[in-house]
Design a protein around this nucleic acid. Structure first.
Lengths: 258, 258
DNA sequence: CGCCAGGTTGACACTTTTCAAGCCGCGTGG
DNA sequence: CCACGCGGCTTGAAAAGTGTCAACCTGGCG
């Protein structure tokens, strides 16, 4: 079994943490990025990639707990997660809030800001992280010149719509254990797509953040974890999770077991 | 107090129902459409509008209960609701489903299909309805030529992302009565934007459809309606709703009253 | 006229939340 | 180096909210 996929064990992050970053380190090259297959460059040919490289010209580091952006701030760029992970959180006038998503390497953040030209949620780093900044007006110009880029960006936005309707389903019709199973399977599948072990990993968010995302209280999350562990589906050691029986998790997710 | 805003009382729909539609009736003209301020044309200048008119060239009538499109069907167009209303519904492998939204005149439908090039949900007409068809590949081409159109389409998609995160909030943190209050206020505000009375209207969806959207059972929806009526916040006569105390509804929505 | 989908209401069951107590692990400061 | 404090987690018991099941009502339509 491979090592737990704690994101801060990623070699490129360890390097960034140990050495002083210079400007040249900050130069982005999508064409060489190990995330190019799952990030914005997906499906672009080399010439188109070169255009994208001109567009994505800065990176930004965000410390654990800090915000990449906050609700209400003027919108001027979207972001691709290069290293680390984020939660997106909407806060409601009366103070209640909800985590609307977790983003990991290669995923795009901030598309909620385009409509009103200001951000609609907070993006908070769950660990020391790094993003590629994609100035929106330049993305727009480039999309007009490079048809494939425009098309791909539409797809990325559309998939965000589909992702959210999946979460609505989760919140609207599933019970606590089904939600947690869905969450774990989704995480597992995304980690696998990034070359991490899908069966053993570190949870970045707290029980409370998971609960907020899944529409349940932290105690209920904890109980569901304990139940899964008692039934031998997973092994839980704080934030370290090992999936022991994927099929049983899938059965719960698909409502076959009560 | 104005008449209830039952959508099938709209004059243009009554006309369409009574007379045989000819091809020339089907000719679309966004520039003259009474929805141009809230639909895709919003913010375009006359020259840009003319471009859009070339793009949007057909309409389609959908009878109550019929599908505009279904999950899994190949995606080739998005749609603007011209007359009537729709529900969007995602169905899950085990048969459970969830209404993810209701669309009324001027709203755009089908953007969930772009990402996977096939539709991700069913769009079902809640009444006899009519849509303007916007072929996606042509929209893409046009967006490249007419910058304002591309920008506006991005905004429309972004707002759909924001709308969905609002629903996630509703499903994740609100209780039954808060959800229903949020639903009624949202409906009221959208009707007002279309020139209908915000305080008196006909509900198109059934209690079950409202419940599915709000993540609760139809009995709970019914009880919440009864509670609001008993407290003098609204008057309910089947699907006919009259809002008597908007501020009290807002207080419930904003969690100020328990 | 009678049927049936849609809606209401009551009683009860079940799930999840709430409140409370206590544990564990980690980082800080003595 | 160890003690302490605290955030994060777990677990239990009771309360609250919502779902389930069932009976009944109502209005529209064939």
């Amino acid at each position: 079994m491979s090592k737990p996929a704690s994101l801060d064990e990623r070699p490129e992050f360890a390097r960034a943490r140990q050495t002083q970053m210079t400007l040249s380190d900050l130069k982005v090259a999508c064409a060489n990025c190990n995330l190019r297959e799952i990030c914005l460059p997906a499906g672009l040919n080399p010439a188109e990639l070169a255009q994208l490289d001109k567009l994505v010209n800065t990176r930004k580091k965000i410390k654990r707990g800090d915000a990449l952006y906050r609700s209400g701030e003027p919108f001027d760029a979207i972001y691709a997660v290069k290293v680390g992970s984020f939660k997106s959180r909407v806060t409601y006038e009366d103070g209640r809030d909800q985590v609307t998503g977790f983003s990991m390497a290669g995923e795009i953040l901030g598309m909620d800001g385009i409509g009103q030209e200001k951000h609609n949620c907070d993006a908070i780093a769950l660990e020391d992280s790094e993003v590629c900044c994609i100035p929106y007006t330049r993305l727009e110009e480039c999309s007009r010149e490079v048809a494939a880029l425009g098309r791909h960006f539409h797809k990325v936005m559309s998939r965000e719509i589909v992702r959210e309707s999946g979460v609505m389903m989760l919140l609207g019709v599933m019970r606590a254990e089904e939600r947690l199973a869905a969450f774990l399977l989704n995480l597992s599948q995304r980690l696998a797509a990034r070359g991490f072990s899908p069966l053993e990993f570190h949870l970045r968010p707290t029980r409370e953040e998971i609960g907020s995302y899944l529409g349940m209280k932290l105690e209920t999350v904890s109980r569901a974890f304990s139940k899964f562990a008692a039934d031998g589906l997973i092994a839980v050691d704080q934030k370290h999770i090992r999936i022991l029986d994927v099929n049983a998790l899938r059965d719960i997710y698909a409502h076959h077991v009560h």
